[in-house]
Design a protein around this nucleic acid. Structure first.
Lengths: 342, 342
DNA sequence: TTGTAAGCGTTATCAG
DNA sequence: CTGATAACGCTTACAA
């Protein structure tokens, strides 16, 4: 049994070392792509590794390196679609690497948020974490990561950090475009359902809305602005309110698709034709958007591209710096917005 | 520095041992709730652990135990809502334990599916895995888990395994109820959009459909049965086909909500009133269902309860056996189904 | 360029 | 009941 595999379990670095006639440290160097290694030695060891089907034990590596091969996805997100989209994007980049994804929902309302995350990071010794909005907007969380020596990337609606640790959409600009589109269709009285206060995305979208109106010389009538929660019900309530205003809008921008769906319901309740009597634009291009009737004109942000870039930044592999930090959104024109009937 | 914490890093089991004046093995026993331990010793060690804020290093534990404190979620799922719902449910049970969730999408079409999963399980040495449909229907995968000594729980539309390793809905029964509801409303000609062949859920739902018709003495006319893919587009196409049949149905059961949304579009295209001219029932009660117009009557299965039960089974803690394996679904009556107009 | 010895922080073995 | 001592599989000094 001189050159066999050690008893029972999977082959270890020792087996490879013995078979290759080198020390385990050399095998370790091969695994870790150390540059100071005889090219021939490397080939020989690599051949054996391949033929045996040896895979280094991640637990042992984690212990020795004091660092796990795990990427964390930390979020407290009201938008299931976004979480899942990001997850898919991250995983598509992680696939084929030795990294795995570990998902960690947190409670942004909790007083212990920061200490919870700290405990999580310290325990798991993650290679890096992805922070999704809205907790990505929490600077103490980012500071914590830095302090713990854990890489991080924040996703947000605006640049909140250095480009190396950001993937950002430009919500303000995207909403400007959407509103300009409505103005171009002939709308002069445009209502707004905002997102909840305290969300940066809500702020950015509202700002873009206001800027577009201002640029077109249109007034922002507070009578047709209502705050929502990003949930369907608030869109429904907001829509009812706007449509029962003394001078109702001919178009409504809802700060996300779910609320836009609510506005659409409100329009239906009043027997309004969309887009004939009321144009509606949403934001996010979630699955629901294309499935509504009429299909919803909305803003799509490239979550797949953002997620992949984020993963690349987190892995810190070659070309991580080449990854963009700002990702333009796109107005997806469907049937829910059109020229005003009157 | 006699009784201080060892330099730099976090406290280890050694620090606790020294402070408590016991061996590290004793501390280990306390951590692992060994029964053969002097009660006073235990208290003393526990006090120190608490006061120091010691948390055992999971990487070291994983190495020594050859078993990670991780639960895997393995899926290849077309239904984002389900994946996310299951994730939330699992996490809500894992929260507060030492376990973390690691998400692993796989490709069910791949020839290397089983070996991919094997590699994953062997590498990560998971405590347990949750298998979501449709790959949960793959018996070789389940066998693999058993063989690797990895706990597993499968989610499915029918009992595919022992109750200890199953959380199942009863899709057949649920669809029977849904179709009975349509029959009760007065429908006699009911169309069906099935799920794709090879999916157990599609089979069960179709069976339930057929059984309900048979029980009511109604014929199952193949002219108004069409196979879908569980995607919106196939629902749209299927709806168009059914509605252009020589004798179109007055009601359609779509095997999931996404296809039901497609059927709804098809009805709108023809200017049909729903539910006046056509009743529609879906399955899943995904987010979209309540947001469609009219809100969709559909079948809801208790994914949260299933996920929590699954997590309990995976952890194998007290009461794991008390967890149910079969979870009844519920018909959610909204506005998309009503009495036929004629 | 390669090897030796000493960890990383925990648990298992097997005496006391 | 408790404690030395040796794993677990890999990496980082530090030599050679």
């Amino acid at each position: 049994m001189e050159d066999g595999i050690s008893s029972g379990g999977k082959p270890t670095i020792n087996d490879i070392a013995r078979l290759a006639g080198v020390s385990k440290k050399t095998v370790s160097r091969v695994i870790n792509r150390s540059p100071l290694l005889n090219e021939e030695t490397r080939r020989r060891v690599e051949d054996i590794i391949r033929s045996i089907g040896f895979v280094p034990n991640p637990q042992a590596r984690a212990l020795a390196l004091r660092r796990n091969f795990l990427i964390g996805l930390v979020h407290d997100n009201p938008n299931a679609q976004m979480v899942l989209g990001m997850q898919q994007a991250l995983l598509s980049t992680l696939r084929g690497t030795e990294f795995e994804l570990i998902v960690r929902p947190v409670d942004r309302g909790s007083a212990s948020l920061v200490s919870d995350v700290r405990a999580f990071l310290e325990r798991q010794r993650l290679h890096g974490v992805m922070l999704l909005p809205p907790i990505s907007e929490n600077d103490s969380l980012a500071a914590l990561c830095g302090q713990l020596g854990c890489r991080y990337v924040r996703m947000g609606s605006a640049m909140l950090d250095t480009p190396e640790q950001m993937v950002a959409s430009n919500d303000r600009e995207a909403v400007r475009q959407a509103v300009n589109y409505l103005i171009g269709l002939g709308h002069r009285r445009i209502g707004l359902v905002t997102g909840p206060q305290g969300f940066r995305s809500a702020f950015e979208r509202r700002s873009g809305f206001a800027e577009a109106l201002a640029a077109a010389g249109l007034a922002l009538d507070p009578q047709i602005v209502v705050e929502g929660t990003y949930r369907f019900e608030s869109g429904l309530a907001g829509g009812r309110q706007l449509l029962s205003a003394a001078a109702p809008p001919t178009a409504i921008f809802a700060s996300n698709d779910e609320m836009a769906a609510g506005v659409l319901h409100a329009a239906r309740e009043r027997g309004l034709d969309v887009p004939g009597d009321l144009s509606i634009i949403g934001f996010d291009d979630t699955a629901i958007a294309a499935h509504l009737w009429p299909p919803l004109t909305t803003v799509r942000w490239p979550i797949q591209a953002m997620g992949r870039a984020a993963a690349a930044k987190l892995l810190g592999s070659d070309g991580a710096d080449a990854q963009p930090a700002l990702f333009p959104s796109e107005l997806i024109i469907r049937a829910s917005a059109g020229p005003p009937a009157r």
